[in-house]
């Protein structure tokens, strides 16, 4: 599996430099959000807002009224916690084309409670007019910008930075669930960094004879209900969701709401932060500690199927993840 280095840097330069009405706003985390090179090359399209997120959100609302499309760059937490009132009143209500690029989603930062956006999807999903996207690999980071920019209204994007695995060879498509394996036993729905973990588990589970149907969700609001229901109907057993977020209000809640409303009589296990804050530590440590990893997924599969798989931590560590190819073809088959 290829590990891409800072895929956002070039993508944003290529995207924004061709669109003069796009403005890059930053709140004192410019290099941390990988737009320092853009700032240096296109200073006229870069607007430093300082450590003042409340003003930045309302300021962006004003820019959008005048036909500019501001892309706000800061850590995910700082886009919706302190300036939630500004996001709602200055941006979301009026359906303004403001794009919130949220870096370090969930537990991808050792910054602890102050830096870990673990309830962003839950909060933003409850706001009318919001669109929520989440990148799961380098290709999605590279191709999400035009997708976000095509939305008629405000968009929040969970962006991965730094060393990012490349799982997909096809671009981000709006509101499309990627089917990564087509097993018939259980359905696994993942998003963000958890998709890579799930790929590790599904490969080993397949060897053990457990057929996992695996969906990767990169558009969380709106959500492709029809496709989800179709996939649920294709498996004999239940559904497991795995997300880098609280199990309250995120992907697990989205899936459970759809299943309940449609009267899907199948079991659901939601994996993610189980209504707890995390703390400052490495991503690997936190994913294991809070059950966001391949091991947690295998345990959930065993619970749902009522069968032990015999899969060990070593099996999972050795699992090799190949690039997952075109969504048009049957991927990973």
């Amino acid at each position: 599996m290829e590990i891409a280095i800072k895929p956002y840097v070039k993508s944003f330069i290529d995207f924004a430099s061709q669109r003069p009405e796009v403005l890059c706003l930053s709140a004192d985390l410019t290099s941390s959000c990988e737009v320092d090179k853009f700032r240096d090359q296109y200073p006229d399209q870069f607007v430093s807002c300082g450590m003042a997120e409340q003003n930045m959100l309302s300021f962006a609302g004003g820019l959008a009224m005048e036909g500019y499309r501001p892309f706000l760059h800061t850590f995910a937490v700082f886009l919706y916690r302190r300036p939630l009132d500004q996001l709602i009143n200055s941006v979301a209500y009026s359906n303004r084309k403001v794009r919130l690029m949220g870096f370090l989603p969930g537990i991808t930062t050792p910054g602890g409670i102050t830096h870990q956006a673990i309830e962003d999807v839950a909060i933003l999903r409850a706001i009318p007019n919001m669109t929520i996207l989440e990148t799961g690999d380098a290709t999605e980071v590279e191709t999400v910008l035009p997708v976000a920019d095509a939305v008629d209204g405000p968009v929040y994007v969970r962006v991965l930075r730094g060393q990012v695995p490349r799982l997909f060879s096809t671009p981000f498509e709006f509101n499309k669930l990627r089917c990564l394996s087509e097993g018939k036993d259980l359905l696994v729905v993942t998003s963000g960094i958890c998709t890579e973990e799930a790929l590790r588990a599904t490969a080993v589970l397949k060897e053990k004879g457990v057929g996992i149907r695996h969906l990767h969700a990169s558009t969380l609001k709106p959500f492709n209900k029809e496709a989800l229901l179709e996939h649920i109907s294709e498996v004999d057993g239940g559904v497991i969701t795995l997300e880098n977020h609280s199990i309250v209000g995120g992907l697990g809640s989205i899936v459970s709401e759809i299943m309940a409303e449609e009267g899907v009589g199948k079991k659901l296990i939601r994996l993610g932060l189980k209504d707890t804050f995390a703390h400052g530590a490495s991503k690997g440590y936190l994913m294991e500690k809070y059950g966001l990893d391949a091991k947690a997924l295998v345990a959930a599969v065993e619970t749902l199927s009522g069968q032990k798989t015999g899969i060990t931590a070593d099996d999972l560590a050795e699992a090799r993840i190949d690039d997952v190819h075109s969504a048009a073809k049957a991927e990973a088959l």
Binding site: S58, S90, S94
Partner: peptide
């Protein structure tokens, strides 16, 4: 012209409008 019942947001939005207008 804008949503303003939550006080202090009008000035910030106005500054965004003004920034855009000055730029143009």
């Amino acid at each position: 012209e804008v949503t303003n019942g939550s006080l202090a947001q009008g000035l910030s939005m106005a500054s965004g409008i003004a920034f855009a207008r000055k730029r143009r």
